[in-house]
Amino acid sequence: MKKIIIKRFLTKLNLLPLIEQVNFYRQMFKNRKENKQFKLENPDVKLPPDFYMYETFQLNYKKFYTNGLPTAQWIYDHVNEFKTLEQANILDWGCGNSRILRHLPTVAGDTNKYFGCDYNTKYIKWCQDNLEGIDFKLNQLTPPLPYDHEKFDLIYGISIFTHLSLEQHHSWFKELQSVLKPNGILFLTTHGNAHKFKLTTREQKEYEAGNLVIHDFKKEGNRLFSAYQPESFMKNITQEYGLKLLKHIPGKTENNQKPQQDVWLFQKS
Rank of each mutant, 00 (worst) to 15 (best):
N67K: 12
P105S: 04
Q204Y: 05
N222I: 06
F9A: 11
L180Q: 02
F82S: 07
R99P: 10
P144C: 06
R223F: 10
F51Q: 09
K33V: 12
K151A: 12
N35T: 01
K205C: 09
P182T: 04
D135T: 11
W126F: 07
T71N: 13
T162K: 02
T253M: 10
G184R: 02
S165G: 13
T11A: 11
Y123G: 12
W93P: 00
R32V: 13
I155C: 01
L104C: 10
T238G: 07
G251Y: 00
N139A: 13
M1L: 14
K3G: 13
Q257C: 15
F152K: 03
Y61F: 07
L85W: 01
R99S: 12
F225E: 02
T142Y: 11
T238L: 09
K268H: 09
Q229G: 09
H163A: 13
Q239K: 12
L164G: 13
K63T: 12
P43I: 03
F136E: 00
Y119T: 07
L243E: 03
N23A: 14
L104G: 09
R8N: 15
K30M: 14
K244I: 10
T84P: 05
N112T: 01
Q140C: 12
K113L: 13
Q168I: 08
D216K: 04
T66M: 10
P48C: 03
G94N: 06
N112A: 04
K62P: 09
C127Q: 01
K198M: 15
C117R: 00
T190N: 08
I6T: 07
K151N: 09
N31F: 14
Q229S: 11
W264K: 02
Y241D: 08
L47Y: 00
Y228L: 04
D50F: 05
E167S: 11
D153I: 01
E203L: 06
G251W: 04
K258A: 15
L13Y: 00
P250D: 04
Y147C: 05
I158L: 08
G157K: 03
N112W: 02
Y52M: 14
